[in-house]
Design a protein around this nucleic acid. Structure first.
Length: 199
DNA sequence: CATAGGATCGCCT
DNA sequence: GGCGATCCTATGT
């Protein structure tokens, strides 16, 4: 059982965790269908001091409350009224750090993922972009708050979890850049909190 | 109650 | 490469 444990998520350094999530497997199980892929792009959101974070200034609202859960919880919200964006909550309870999963390399259940996307074949964009990641994995914003440290039983209706399949990404293979779509964050928009790797 | 804006995507030109 | 979709959230009156 290689499922990522609570201790992995509850560490303090969200920027480090965002990089370590590269190469990990992200799975979903909905209605007896398991789909999953290798995480290849992430962004770190550093809690209350990061203007790009929804929790900047310790803003606790109905939406952001999930970010204050213990590490290993799913924070999923609706973006532009259309896309469910999937984040992994990190750090201890009441510290609202999170990592946005921006891209995966689809591996398990590719047919099901194609079906969800409405595509016939795998193209270059398949699995890239946070909206598409959720779409092909069947993740809906109503699943926010899910515990990511529990692997569902075979008969369970739904579950989201991550596994370590011992893919090791060397630090020099990690590309760093500014986060996407956070121009409003002033100088925090310049932080190099976006991480990508080529697999 | 009314309004503005968003951690995006896909289609159109 | 430009733009519309689409609806939740936060804020203000």
């Amino acid at each position: 059982m290689n499922i990522l444990q609570r201790a992995f998520y509850e560490r303090e350094d969200v920027v480090l965790i965002a990089q370590e999530l590269l190469g990990k497997m992200l799975f979903t199980q909905f209605n007896n269908t398991i789909t999953g892929g290798i995480i290849i792009e992430t962004e770190a959101y550093a809690g209350i001091t990061d203007r790009a974070s929804h929790a900047f200034g310790n803003k606790r609202t109905f939406r952001t409350e999930v970010m204050y859960s213990k590490g290993g919880t799913a924070y999923i919200y609706l973006c532009y009224g259309v896309h469910s964006l999937f984040n992994v909550v990190t750090n201890k309870k009441d510290i609202p750090d999170a990592v946005l999963i921006r891209a995966i390399k689809p591996i398990i259940g590719v047919d099901s993922m194609l079906q969800r996307s409405g595509k016939k074949t795998v193209d270059k964009e398949f699995g890239t972009g946070p909206g598409r990641v959720s779409k092909i994995l069947g993740i809906h914003f109503s699943f926010t708050g899910f515990d990511l440290t529990v692997k569902p039983s075979k008969t369970a209706e739904e579950g989201i979890w991550l596994e370590d399949n011992r893919i090791n990404i060397l630090p020099e293979k990690i590309l760093k850049g500014p986060r996407v779509g956070v121009d409003y964050a002033g100088k925090d928009a310049l932080r190099l909190y976006r991480f990508r790797t080529i697999i």
